[in-house]
Design a protein around this nucleic acid. Structure first.
Lengths: 256, 256
DNA sequence: TGCATGTTTTGCATATTTTGCGAAATAACA
DNA sequence: TGTTATTTCGCAAAATATGCAAAACATGCA
């Protein structure tokens, strides 16, 4: 196995705890991680001491711990992109005159993940692009907008992922997909209709970021069959909001 | 320095990133952690690879990374206590006829921390007991309710913390405080008025938990000068809700 | 109560990883 | 281009983690 250091290994443990399998016994984890039982006990013990894991039920089973919640608050309060974007996103949610959710998304590993969302007051709809949930690269306006921003080199590196995401689906046409990304880049936005959630129309635009090598997008997921006029309006608001955010980001960079 | 393993050390790094000081250069961190610069670079590099940290601004500065957001979603979706309590907390927020926020809190290190909150629709007030923010042990109904549940031995261990929290304040009377905790234990709830936030009245009741050694409380923070009748109503709802949650927890334990 | 079973911790020798140092490479910038 | 600040790298020494087997602990049941 490739060289590994403690952060890698630690994160490997934490990554066992997914929404699909949130509970792990030490025995299961030892098997999954290919380590002896006693090592797994020691590692879990350390993680529990740090608060990143928590013991349930007489310690037979472990779940993610309270330190995660604390760290998440810190990130909400202090991440540069999130703090800059939040007020603008609230404004956008307020101005859009149709039920919707505003999404701030970024590339994360081989996925696109929402890192902040603002719901329009009274909008009951829920969206797959939910805060903290990694989504496929190829589906939905936020993802496509992000792909469209990538340098050719980086995009090529991701093609295998796109291929595997499309596996089983109707024929995935790399060339056609690239052309689509080119169009998005040119027009400056992406729209998808019901591609991720049935009945939901998504629009997204690219975002500059203060983060080294981070690619992000700002999107709006609209519920309740919005008409074309409504979507044009939302798109315009979105472009304006993104410009505001980009401006603040530039500002921040200049200040340092 | 005491024996330490890699999980401990890793967590030490993560804990540097607080809401007060969210940005760290490698140099600052190396100094704070008492390690050489090259070690700090290596550790930060590993953490960035795992997504727990993120490089800002040409990588001169680091912040908490997207993996934290992903882990937080996992915890929201899967923590046994949170998932059990959430529907009951929504119900409670809905039934309370005054503006309020419902709080699920637990002991976390030497503090009490809210791990889930539900705001009553239309309640604009904000509360210091915010999700993910560690609060002093001695202040507020959720904290006191939790202290009141602790075995004498454990409480004694925490007395120095209480002392230091009270440092500078008007004379802190350990005996008086213990007596107060005794009253809370007997009557089964705690009420504080404006102790944490001016104008906010807090009520809290203890909670059984499925977690080994975890002590928790369910509380309501009421805004807008609620009258006594209102508070009695809320308190009764709170007791009922806690019973529901306790029941579900028992259920869960029995199932395993 | 005591036995049988399943779970968790510990001691120890060994293997692996981490560390700090100085040097080298790289990037930033005037 | 030269100058400085940042970041990576190679290496030997020091610190830690690991697996194993044995021991301690807990649990359930007759």
């Amino acid at each position: 196995m490739a060289a590994m250091n403690r952060a890698d290994r630690l994160h490997l443990i934490l990554r066992l705890f997914t929404a699909e399998k949130p509970l792990w016994t030490v025995e299961e984890a030892a098997a999954a991680l290919n380590v002896s039982l006693s090592t797994a006990y020691r590692q879990f013990g350390a993680l529990v001491r740090s608060g990143l894991l928590d013991a349930v039920e007489g310690a037979r089973v472990y779940v993610l711990g309270p330190a995660v919640i604390e760290l998440d608050r810190n990130i909400r309060l202090s991440d540069p992109l999130i703090t800059i974007a939040t007020p603008a996103m609230k404004w956008l949610a307020d101005q859009a005159q149709i039920p919707c959710t505003v999404l701030l998304c970024r590339l994360y590993r081989d996925r696109v993940m929402c890192i902040h969302q603002e719901e329009r007051a009274g909008s009951a709809g829920s969206v797959s692009y939910e805060r903290g949930r990694p989504m496929p690269l190829s589906q939905g306006a936020p993802s496509r907008t992000i792909l469209a921003q990538l340098p050719a080199r980086r995009l090529s590196g991701l093609m295998p992922i796109l291929q595997s995401e499309a596996a089983g689906n109707e024929a995935f046409q790399p060339e056609e997909f690239r052309a689509e990304l080119g169009r998005i880049r040119k027009q400056g936005y992406s729209i998808t209709r019901g591609e991720v959630d049935p009945g939901v129309v998504g629009v997204a635009v690219p975002l500059m970021t203060p983060l080294k090598g981070i690619v992000a997008s700002l999107g709006v997921a609209c519920f309740g069959a919005p008409d074309d006029i409504g979507m044009i309006r939302v798109r315009a608001l979105l472009v304006a909001t993104a410009e505001t955010i980009n401006g603040s980001v530039q500002q921040l960079s200049a200040d340092r």
